[in-house]
Design a protein around this nucleic acid. Structure first.
Lengths: 308, 308
DNA sequence: ATAATATGATTGACAAAGGCAACTAATTTT
DNA sequence: AAAATTAGTTGCCTTTGTCAATCATATTAT
């Protein structure tokens, strides 16, 4: 095992030990509410539609017998009720009673207050980094499978670090996915550099897709006289297939139209299959094709254009 | 409560729920080793020097009676032994036996393997982001109190995102700590921009202080003919007071000397008390002073210089 | 259609986890 | 020297949670 991996493992384990304590501390206030941890979790899960004992046992990873008893207890306390499930007589649907909802609301309230006091001493930048880091961990460990597209927002580039982050993102994604060499990274850095220096602000724009403060995608329009150039269309691999590329492309094309451009072009390479498909679907047509070996062997540069 | 805070709280709670599950899953392999979770933690804690039952009870946050029983069990199994503590007859010192160390080593080994398989599917960039995020969370929540200085490394700036991150860092720290307006951010961005464009590579350099991949400080030398200019000396507030500023300053001054400069100067403002103290301690002398209101009211710009 | 099998939920019996309070022995305070 | 405090132990107890048997309903195979 590499040295580097060893260090990462040790940091992860150290984090796990640390966070076990944090979670333990945070859980204490639940016990003060008179509910056990498991009961609180059941109450929480049962607030979702279509909750059944089976699902609970899976979600909480405890055995069904225990769940059955917890349900019985919560039912006796008047917080939970069960209804038969029409489509399957074995199954029972669980739901919170009015009192149960109130109990849960009180619990949520105190949880919220507790977290609020946890982050209270932190300045806003640090809070933002905290939650961004949490989102990152969750997204990375789930392989992006739990991303809710509505949580990803588009904003136009404006913060000073944006360019750096976008450059970095181009660098690693193209390296990781297509094996481009470091010249590509330099080329991208140069292109952003040129944008910052020369672009006419009212005819050029960059959008960042952001997931809880984490930059996960981008696209840009650069005015070139008559023509608009579409550039920097890129998505973090974990954020593909959820309609985000479409949203970015729409934002860019809408801006280009509203700014008054009648023609738009873009340059890409033939190995960006997904992007090319999206360009074509959006109405772009290929107009030129030439080999370009500066970033990798066997690369063909493509040019697309479209009337707006 | 602000809208923004509410969203952050909800992200934190959502992360906590998620990570509770992760930790639960990761803990399972311990149970397979025949030890209970608490026993495994005791074994781990007892591997540190000076472990006592009292400390264990505090570290694990369980009551002393339970700890006493666990110790008895581990002692019976031949993994743990207790020795009287000379300075206080009530206290007993705990330590692992040879067999206990082996047991712990086996446990650690399987923990490591488990984490290794957790990150195995991730490309290196994502692993780096994962551990960086964990370090960030831990550092932010502990208010920096657990930073081990030897974990912070210096490297010279080279990655494409560096400039962006450094710009961002200048922006938020000066805003947060000294209330500088957005013009300052622009000024810094401009200064890095100029560096990238014009600096003579063999006479100029930027260093980043990095904590598990997280950029937490920087300093730079820019060659200006005869003179070296010291620039961008900055530390994340959480990373002050651990000798890191000294390390950065040393690195920069050593480079300036070795590069052959005989004179060095820097510009700063009078409200950066800590930095000014460090400059003076390093041998810099104030040589000019003039008001500068472009970043905030009541600001005095200072110039320092030194013979190398 | 019927028998065999699988699944969801419940229950009794039991084991493990862990708190509480009373106790001993050493130490510190008054 | 007596009183109070602290570290650790132990008996007694509750809570947490597992396992296997059981029942009722569904599904699959014959």
């Amino acid at each position: 095992m590499e040295r580097n991996t060893q260090k990462q493992i040790s940091e992860i384990r150290s984090f796990n030990r640390y966070y076990t304590n944090i979670l333990g501390l945070l859980d204490q206030h639940i016990l003060e509410s008179g509910l056990s941890l498991a009961e609180a979790r059941v109450l929480f899960e049962a607030s979702k539609a279509g909750c059944t004992p089976k699902l609970l046992a899976e979600a909480l990873r405890v055995n069904a017998g225990y769940i059955s008893r917890i349900i019985k207890g919560l039912e006796a306390a008047g917080w939970l009720e069960r209804k038969p499930f029409n489509e399957d007589g074995r199954v029972q649907l669980l739901s919170l009673t009015k009192a149960g909802k109130e109990k849960l609301a009180a619990l949520e309230q105190s949880s919220n207050e507790q977290i609020a006091s946890l982050i209270e001493p932190l300045p806003e930048v640090q809070r933002a980094e905290l939650t961004r880091s949490m989102t990152a961990i969750r997204t990375l460990l789930t392989g992006g499978k739990e991303i809710r597209p509505e949580e990803v927002t588009l904003r136009t580039e404006q913060e000073p670090g944006d360019i750096g982050i976008l450059t970095q993102m181009h660098g690693w994604i193209y390296q990781e996915e297509y094996g481009y060499n470091v010249c590509f990274e330099a080329y991208v850095a140069q292109s952003f550099f040129e944008y910052m220096q020369n672009a006419e602000p009212e005819k050029s724009r960059i959008w960042c897709a952001e997931h809880n403060g984490r930059t996960v995608g981008c696209i840009g329009i650069v005015g070139r006289g008559e023509w608009a150039q579409l550039r920097w269309f890129l998505l973090d691999p974990l954020y593909r297939g959820i309609g985000l590329g479409r949203r970015l492309l729409d934002a860019a094309l809408t801006f280009a139209r509203e700014t008054g451009f009648h023609k738009i072009y873009l340059e890409t390479t033939d190995d960006l299959k997904d992007a090319v498909r999206m360009y074509e679907k959006a109405g772009f047509r290929k107009c030129a094709e030439k080999p370009n070996h500066s970033w990798r062997e066997d690369l063909t540069e493509l040019e697309f254009e479209m009337e707006l």
